[in-house]
Design a protein around this nucleic acid. Structure first.
Lengths: 212, 212
DNA sequence: TTATTTTTCCATCAAAAGATGGAATCAATG
DNA sequence: CATTGATTCCATCTTTTGATGGAAAAATAA
C-alpha cells in the first residue's frame, strides 16, 4: 500500500495501473529509447501530462515497469517451484518448462523486458538493480551443494535454461515466419524442443553422480 | 566493388569504413533508437554531416551495419562448417561451439545486433530482410533428412543452439557480475556450459536413431 | 450546495536529434 | 601551378520528444 507501484497493482482499474500496463507492452516491444511517452499516452487515450502526473518522468515509469515485471516473474517462479518440489529432476524440469513457457507466452512483455535489460544499454545511465532469481532456480534444480552458496557454473547453467525459454517468446515475431507455423503449433514445438535440448544433459549428469 | 558497403569493407582505412565500424558497436550496444548519429560522429571525431555524406540517413547506415554483420557471420559459419565437415557429431558440435564462441566474444556487436534484431521493433518501420542461416546450420548438424527441406523442428533446434551462444556474449555485462568472474574465466565457463547443455541431447538422439 | 481535492487537458517550452546547403579544405590531375 | 572533384565542417532548420504551469473538469468531502 505504501509505494505508488503497489497501489497501482492493487487497483488494476485505476488510470495509474492502466498506464503501467500499457507501458509494459511498449517498453517491451520498442525498448526504452524506442518508446515515447506520447506513444503510451496515445494508446491509453490520455494526454502526456496525465501520464507525467501519475508516474513522474519517463525514467520513473520505466523503473516501475521493470520492478513490476520482476515482481510478476518472481511470483510465478515461486508458484512453479511449489508445484515441482520433491519430484524427480526430469519431471521437475519438464513441468517447469511447460509452466514458464505458457506463462511467458501469455505475457511476452516479461521476456521482452528481461532480455532487453540483459542485452541493451540506455544512454541515460539508469541502472536499477533488478532482483535476481538464478540462485533460487539453481537450488530448485538441485544444482547447489550446500544451501548458502551457488557456484558460478550452476548460475551459468540456470541462465542458459532461462534464456533459452525467453528467447523463443521474445523472438516469436522473428522465428515463427522462419518455421512457418501458426501460434499454437509454434508454442508446442518450442516446448518440445526446449525439453529435448535442456533436460537430457542434466538428467544424465545426475544419474552419473548418483551412481558414483 | 559495386555497392558502397563492399567498398567500405575493402578499404578499412577509409572514413566510410571507419564510420561503419563505429556504428556497428554503437547500434549493438544501444540499439537503433538508443544510438544517435551524433554519438557515432563524435566517436569518429567527425561532424554529423560527414556521416550523412558517406552513408545517407540513419536508416541507411543501420541497414548497412546489419548487412555487414550478417556477411561476417555467414563467412564465419562457412569457415567453421568447413573445419568440422565429416567429423562425428559430438566433435562437430564441440568444435563449432568453441569456434563460434571465440569469434563472437571478439566481435560482440555481432551477437548484440542479431539479438537486437530478433527481439526489438523499431518505430520507423524498417524491415530489412536478413540472410538466414538456420537451414544451413541444420544441414551441418545433420538435422535434415533430405537435402532440400528443413523441418520446423530442426530449425527450432538450430535457433536454440545459436541463441544460447549469442545470449552469453551479449549478456556478458549483465551475467559476469552475477557469477563474479574475470573475462577469461567467464568465457571458459560459458564454453563448458554450452557444450554440456547443448551437445548431450543431440548425441543421445543420434545414437538411438542409429541403433534402430 | 459549496468547498476542497484530485485528476485531466491545453498550450507551451526547451532540449535533443535527424537532416541539409553551402562554404572551406584537401587531394588528385593535367 | 591551376583546375577539378571529393571530403569535411559550420551554421542552421525542422521535427520529435520529454517535460511543466495553469486552467478546466471531475470527484470527494463538508
Amino acid at each position: 500500500m505504501a509505494t505508488p507501484l503497489e497501489k497501482a497493482r492493487k487497483d488494476p482499474e485505476s488510470m495509474k495501473a492502466r498506464i503501467l500496463h500499457i507501458a509494459r507492452r511498449f517498453f517491451g516491444e520498442y525498448g526504452y529509447h524506442g518508446t515515447t511517452t506520447r506513444m503510451i499516452a496515445k494508446e491509453a487515450g490520455i494526454d502526456i501530462s496525465t501520464l507525467h502526473y501519475h508516474w513522474g518522468d519517463k525514467k520513473d515509469l520505466y523503473e516501475a515497469v521493470i520492478v513490476d515485471i520482476n515482481k510478476d516473474l518472481g511470483q510465478k517462479l515461486m508458484a512453479v517451484e511449489k508445484r515441482i518440489h520433491g519430484l524427480p529432476l526430469d519431471q521437475r524440469m519438464a513441468i517447469a518448462i511447460d509452466a514458464m513457457t505458457d506463462y511467458l507466452f501469455k505475457f511476452p512483455e516479461v521476456s521482452n523486458l528481461v532480455l532487453f535489460h540483459y542485452f541493451n544499454k540506455t544512454r541515460d545511465a539508469l541502472d536499477l538493480r533488478v532482483p535476481e532469481f538464478t540462485a533460487d532456480i539453481a537450488r530448485s534444480m538441485g544444482l547447489t551443494r550446500d544451501r548458502k552458496t551457488t557456484s558460478p557454473r550452476a548460475k551459468i547453467e540456470v541462465l542458459a535454461v532461462m534464456n533459452a525459454i525467453h528467447n523463443f517468446i521474445s523472438g516469436e515475431k522473428f522465428f515463427r515466419p522462419i518455421v512457418n507455423l501458426n501460434r499454437k503449433d509454434y508454442i508446442s514445438i518450442v516446448k518440445e524442443t526446449l525439453k529435448f535440448v535442456l533436460i537430457g544433459s542434466f538428467v544424465e549428469r545426475e544419474k552419473k553422480q548418483k551412481s558414483s
